[in-house]
Design a protein around this nucleic acid. Structure first.
Lengths: 332, 332
DNA sequence: CTGAAAGCGCTTACAG
DNA sequence: CTGAAAGCGCTTACAG
């Protein structure tokens, strides 16, 4: 690496442009407020020195960070990638930098990532996971907005933007019943939200007067590869299911592959229901019936909440239900 | 949001513990250097006030950031997710925070993200994309280590950790030839690296004395969904290929699905070769023959380079070839 | 439109 | 082992 002995500072730019540091600072943050000729001199000085403002110093002085932290469990096989990608893009576009935290499923790790984010005085923390009391108390003394997505807790810490997972389960149950399915098999990940969806399904299914569905549990995150084991279970069952309700579209894709490899036709011999409406669900053969969550909408709501917060406005709606949509395709 | 009027500072902790701010700072950063009883008082004061250090101020004062920026084109369908996930995890574990930049394929966006990272005085920028001259000159005046991964340029700006994409293409060509394939069809993404692999394949294939392969170009990133169009092309060809060389395992998966949907058997009627050795390549039916890049190895090398740099040591090996491995499975 | 100066909240030689 | 004080590189009322 070529590295110069010293990184240029505001002082040097100011000296070169024959103005005070205050004026350079003003020009950089709000060009309109500085006289044209002065601005021109500053521009040249910046150019000549290769000056890049020190955001650490700037943020400290102005006590705002224009940084946002995003906490997600995983990058691989994540149901959130599409939404996260949108959020990160738009945040960057609106001048925010994004710190990313991979929480896994460990509360301790989440805790330490939240601490790190607070230490950097981020304007907001966006979390796809549930918040612990630990985190709650950490946030109490901060000026950081906590945004929970995909979740609608009774009493959110900050803002919650999500939907009812129980309703998802209920809607799937009703839909399958109306299509004439009678022996669903549920594949549920070992996570609170997946369990809520399962709960919704089971309750509704019982209300409809049917016998309890058979079930499998898989670990997080729900993946393509889980299909092999689950399908093996299904094949062994005496009373074979007529439809599998999967925790993700990738798992649904895996189920289709496994079923077809065993010579079963989808949906004729076995229906397959996905979750998340990943792009592949419209591209698979057969295409996958799934639940769509409007990631773009969530991203927009998140940005709006952050913008309000950064402008010091109070954010009134603390819970925003973005709903979901059942997309009927070929696999069910 | 409950928000206290004021976030506690070092001063308040120091006052409560009846010591100077210097001592609190020492205790927080290096507990061993402070007397036990003093430390105990400080611990209590921290607890009582709910103090969280201001990393902005700390980093400014110590002129180091313990932040690292990661630049990737996309989150969805990225060949790098596995490697990135590993890197982010280990960086976090070693006390670094990670800023993420989604560059897309736009140099302007990359440029502005690099600026933002430099403004935050990150210790290192890890980039999966090629570096422009723009970026090069920006970096010249910084103390930031630039790490290019998946790439081995002649004269790297900082450190390059990668492998030869041409060699990948050559190896695939030799492998397919040895398996008796004679009419390969190449699906290449519109990206420099994909083109290098293609180039390696084409050159080697010609060396082996065979006719030039047929080809398709797809846009970035190479996805499952590209398979439909490519397979349609293939079906229309007079001289049908006997194997498709795909730019990613997801595309390979799509090809298998399309081929099977059309009643072709893989690999009997059509071989399918992947790239990246994604987890699914071992789980698909048939399993996918692919090229493995050792993401864990790359992550380790990146971390080592950063650690050296943070400790002020000179990093001697500017180019690290991590190689690759051809994993033969069922699809070819 | 511009400058002098205080302040943001830490760290770190320097002294003891 | 601990403290007083300078300094990190900016921003922002306050004055003019």
């Amino acid at each position: 690496m070529t590295r110069s002995a010293k990184v240029p500072t505001l002082n040097e730019v100011a000296a070169l442009a024959r103005v005070s540091t205050a004026t350079v600072s003003r020009f950089l943050n709000n060009p309109g407020v500085v006289a044209e000729e002065t601005g021109e001199r500053i521009r040249e000085a910046v150019e000549q020195t290769g000056y890049i403002p020190n955001a650490l110093a700037g943020d400290l002085a102005s006590s705002k960070s224009r940084m946002v932290a995003v906490m997600i469990p995983h990058l691989e096989n994540s149901l959130f990638n599409d939404m996260i990608e949108r959020m990160v893009s738009e945040m960057t576009a609106s001048g925010n930098n994004v710190m990313i935290g991979l929480t896994g499923t460990s509360p301790a790790r989440t805790d330490s990532l939240v601490r790190a984010a607070l230490a950097r005085r981020v304007d907001a923390i966006i979390s796809t996971g549930p918040a612990s009391e630990q985190v709650d108390s950490l946030l109490a003394r901060s000026h950081t907005l906590f945004i929970q997505v995909w979740e609608l807790p009774e009493e959110p810490i900050g803002v919650a933007i999500g939907f009812s997972h129980e309703d998802v389960g209920r809607d799937i149950a009703r839909f399958l019943a109306s299509r004439g399915y009678r022996r669903p098999h549920l594949v549920t990940a070992d996570s609170p939200r997946a369990k809520s969806r399962r709960e919704g399904f089971v309750v509704e299914w019982r209300n409809l007067g049917f016998a309890a569905p058979s079930e499998s549990i898989v670990d997080m995150p729900t993946r393509f590869g889980h299909a092999r084991g689950v399908f093996a279970e299904i094949k062994r069952m005496d009373d074979r299911p007529d439809v599998v309700v999967c925790g993700s579209d990738h798992l649904a894709q895996g189920m289709i592959v496994e079923a077809q490899a065993a010579g079963w036709r989808v949906p004729d011999d076995l229906g397959v229901f996905g979750f998340g409406n990943n792009t592949i669900s419209g591209e698979m053969r057969p295409t996958i019936t799934s639940i769509e969550i409007d990631g773009a909408r969530i991203a927009r709501e998140v940005l709006a909440a952050i913008a309000s917060h950064q402008q010091g406005r109070d954010f009134t709606s603390r819970k925003i239900d973005v709903g979901f949509r059942l997309i009927a395709r070929e696999s069910v």
